[in-house]
Design a protein around this nucleic acid. Structure first.
Lengths: 227, 227
DNA sequence: GCCATAACGAGAGCACTGCTCTTGCTTTTC
DNA sequence: GAAAAGCAAGAGCAGTGCTCTCGTTATGGC
């Protein structure tokens, strides 16, 4: 009918509805959601879903990309908020990511937990996956350019060269040490949240987990040298 | 027949064989191993396995406990090796744990990855689960008793009180700050290994991951204040 | 406007899963 | 030696991912 085509529009809507229902199932069943159950909720035969997603893994991949983008949005928005210093920007980012994870633990587990067995992340995911670390690196780089970070000893060894290659993406003279520190802070962020979500904190810090998280993230910021 | 009973001995052997085969399947299929496939490999009907493990989750729980004990053994052995300083003991522990994880990623994912959906960790697991962090805390405490750790500002807030309660388990006057730092270092250890294993390091540090891991763990040791 | 083509939804079916129940058999216990 | 308890096997149930076939419906070239 129309230029866009009725079928194309219906297809897009259908795809979106399947993903929405799947996301709802993800929140209750985790990564082992049932494609058949999703199909039942959508109101179509399970075989019809395969017109939209080639396999259950393909459906999960779509959800993974959306999750990466959601956490990326969250992180970038929080970091762009006006804040006192660069350390505060990092802390705001960290708290925002943590709260996003607490609001939907299964979605967090989907992207930062153990990979689904037999699942191989396709190329499409690597772009959105890097948004949080890139934002952290951007904060660090900005602080460095502003002369806020004191110089320190540069690492040596082969990994330092690899860090230098990554650092080159940010500019001609970014010290590899800072990229290493940013990467380390990123992993501390993920590790701290995962530890809390996956129950590693039980029976030690149960009440003020937010406070302990901030304690850890302040350590990470100090490691980078953020003011 | 014998005092122990033939049946009891056969039962113990059978239980062990099922676990051994299951561990082998774990290495290839991950946490979604099939109880039926395990039964086939052992050479018995799937229903017979239920005489030994009440459910598939029960089997996994047994494997989880063994995995916690294995990594606990590894960590303790490495830390008890004679070393230059306390930082070296921590680094030895960290490298040993990392190598254990690299040797059997699925076993690592089983205990430090996202929890299997619907699976609730029973009480039996919390004992073995704490061995690594307790060993780290012991290293920190020993260094503190020996006067090797410089005093620093103590944290405030509710989480500090919770840390103090944990610190009391180690002695009357262990600063909560050190317990917090030890806990943070433990999560950095887990986070760094998980990040490497779950593919977060791809396309940034690919060659000298051991070197970058050491860089991170030196940061953690410095955060504690280990000499 | 017609019509071949492609997309689509539904149903049946395959091989698999965790788990239960029943049915015989063997070991232990009294 | 008999009763009781432990054990292995098979059938069966409800569920899974995925494939194939078969009518139906929208699309694009003529």
């Amino acid at each position: 009918m129309s230029a866009a085509g009725v079928r194309a529009r219906v297809r897009a809507e259908m795809t979106e509805e399947i993903k929405t229902v799947a996301r709802r199932h993800l929140a209750t069943d985790g990564a082992n959601l049932s494609l058949r159950a999703v199909a039942r909720d959508v109101g179509m035969a399970s075989s019809a879903v395969y017109r939209y997603f080639a396999s259950r893994d393909d459906l999960l991949t779509a959800l993974i990309i959306e999750a990466y983008d959601a956490v990326g949005d969250t992180a970038e928005a929080a970091a762009d908020q006006p804040a006192g210093g660069d350390a505060d920007r990092f802390l705001a980012l960290a708290h925002a990511v943590r709260e996003w994870a607490l609001a939907d633990p299964h979605q967090w587990a989907l992207i930062y937990g153990s990979p689904v067995p037999g699942y191989q992340a396709p190329q499409d995911t690597i772009g959105p996956a890097t948004r949080v670390i890139f934002k952290i690196a951007a904060i660090v780089e900005a602080a460095y350019r502003a002369g806020q970070i004191a110089p320190g000893p540069e690492p040596t060894g082969r990994y330092a060269e690899e860090l230098a290659a990554v650092a080159a993406q940010f500019g001609p003279d970014v010290p590899p040490r800072l990229i290493g520190a940013a990467l380390s802070a990123y992993f501390q962020l993920i590790g701290a949240i995962s530890a809390e979500l996956f129950g590693q904190l039980n029976n030690s810090v149960d009440e003020d987990r937010r406070g302990f998280f901030e304690f850890q993230m302040r350590g990470a910021a100090a490691f980078i040298g953020l003011p």
